[in-house]
């Protein structure tokens, strides 16, 4: 039985729709060398290379709806996201034996907000700085609403905001208030 947020989890405004996705599994892939043994294991198990600096990628295409997203978080960390629970568990188990790195399951520790609409950029400009908005294929960790958020974009028309779970309420409240004023020119 999953915990639920205490409030309505979808925010809608002119040109903007924000919803909370509770079904995303997340893991931190930690490694000591982005080109080493662990990276090779990821490529073999997940079917994708570790993304480069500030990059995010979705795939492999062959997995369809069960595709994963990999997002660069630091020189020694990549986030793995997926909605297919079984696939996710298999990947985590398979990487447990990979050397020179480890997998830390973070499911439930982050909240994933899906943000769509033409005014995504306006929203991000009101939460953070001008470097916070990711272009497609990018994942940018920055200060939004005074908390740390990874914003990533692997599909056109959709930006994901990944925030530490304990700050989700704070971020959502800020977004809600901002969206409420979107009607003002």
């Amino acid at each position: 039985m999953a915990d639920t947020l205490t409030r309505e989890a979808t925010i809608e405004a002119d040109g903007l729709r924000v919803s909370v996705d509770l079904a995303v599994h997340i893991a931190s892939l930690r490694y000591f060398n982005a080109d080493g043994v662990f990276a090779a294991a990821v490529r073999s198990v997940v079917g994708m290379a570790l993304p480069g600096v500030l990059q995010a990628a979705m795939g492999p295409a062959s997995w369809g709806a069960g595709a994963f997203t990999l997002a660069w978080r630091s020189p020694t960390e990549t986030l793995l996201l997926g909605v297919d629970g079984e696939r996710f568990s298999n990947v985590v188990a398979a990487l447990a034996d990979a050397g020179e790195g480890c997998v830390v399951d973070q499911s439930g520790g982050f909240r994933v907000l899906r943000v769509c609409g033409e005014r995504v950029f306006d929203l991000l400009a009101r939460l953070g700085g001008s470097a916070s908005a990711p272009k497609i294929g990018e994942g940018r960790r920055s200060r939004l609403a005074d908390v740390t958020v990874l914003a990533l974009c692997v599909r056109p028309e959709e930006t994901l905001l990944i925030v530490d779970r304990v700050y989700a309420e704070h971020l959502l409240t800020w977004i809600r208030e901002t969206a409420a004023d979107f009607a003002t020119p």
Binding site: V53, L54, S74, P75, G129, A131, R140, R141, S142, R143
Partner: peptide, 11 residues
Amino acid sequence: PWCGPRDENEF
């Protein structure tokens, strides 16, 4: 060096 230009309050 990794993330590019950012505001001071991120540091």
